[in-house]
């Protein structure tokens, strides 16, 4: 199936505080993305901004798909101004997604800030496992989709930096306390997405408790298909491309 396609904006809804939910209808049938896959979206047809922007799949609804994004710069600002009926050039789905957990494994999801975007797709794909979601944001206003996760049967643990919602502090510490108390009775597998600092702390935790885990990495990229070599991250096996070998990597593989 063609991975170069056009899609019509069905809805571009402001959720809260610079966070938007974009629903797109592809003009042609596209390959169903796996959780952790991403799309490159051209926010303009002109020369500035020049490059497409990568967004992970948030939700797939009967052939339409949703991207959840935060306005952080020029590209996402323009994207936030798109109206229903606007048509966007898109490339995807791209990259390697999250592998499915083993049959007997409990699932822990960890999201920091906008890292919640791919976690929704992941939670939905394994909802029969009643995953636990550890979700940290700066403040109450940034906490998204709580009801959606709950109605899916996800057990949510929330923390905010300022304590305005859930536990005050870092979500990795919340997870650490949980693990220490629970002593990992069942074998767990962890899936995470969020800021580099959070992922780095998680990798420390994973090695301390010998947890299996996968993390979705982010990096500036130009092509999304493995040729510009712009998006590499340092791994134990040398530089690897976020767009091709990633964006999902085994947590122990990344060098921080």
């Amino acid at each position: 199936m063609n991975r170069v396609f056009k899609a019509t904006v069905v809805e571009n809804k402001k959720l809260i505080n610079n966070h938007y939910l974009l629903t797109l209808h592809p003009a042609v049938k596209i390959k169903k993305p796996r959780p952790g896959n991403f799309f490159m979206v051209a926010v303009e047809t002109g020369l500035d901004p020049l490059l497409k922007r990568p967004f992970s799949i948030h939700r797939w609804i009967d052939g339409n798909f949703q991207l959840l994004y935060r306005v952080t710069g020029k590209g996402t600002k323009i994207l936030s101004e798109k109206k229903p009926g606007n048509i966007l050039d898109i490339l995807g789905p791209l990259g390697k997604g999250f592998p499915f957990p083993g049959k007997d494994r409990q699932v822990i999801l960890v999201a920091g800030g906008i890292g919640i975007a791919p976690m929704y797709a992941m939670a939905e794909s394994i909802k029969d496992k009643n995953p636990l979601l550890f979700y940290g944001t700066k403040t109450k206003k940034d906490v998204l989709l709580v009801d959606d996760f709950r109605s899916m049967g996800v057990d949510l643990r929330i923390s905010t930096d300022d304590g305005s919602y859930g536990v005050k502090g870092n979500i990795v510490n919340v997870l650490k306390k949980y693990i220490a108390r629970d002593s990992l009775k069942a074998p767990y597998v962890m899936y995470a997405c969020g800021p580099a600092i959070m992922l780095m702390k998680l990798s420390g935790l994973a090695s301390e408790y010998k947890m299996k885990g996968y993390i979705a990495m982010e990096q500036n990229m130009a092509c999304g298909i493995g040729t510009c070599l712009g998006c590499v991250v340092k791994t134990r096996k040398g530089h690897k491309r976020v767009c091709k070998e990633g964006p999902v990597f085994p947590i122990e593989e990344i060098i921080w």
């Binding site: 500035d48 990229m221 712009g230």
Partner: peptide, 18 residues
């Protein structure tokens, strides 16, 4: 090659240091 980050977008262009 070089350590990341290796690319940055600029007006109508991009910088790379692969």
């Amino acid at each position: 090659g070089n350590p990341p980050p290796r690319i940055a977008e600029t007006p109508s262009g991009m910088l790379n240091a692969i």
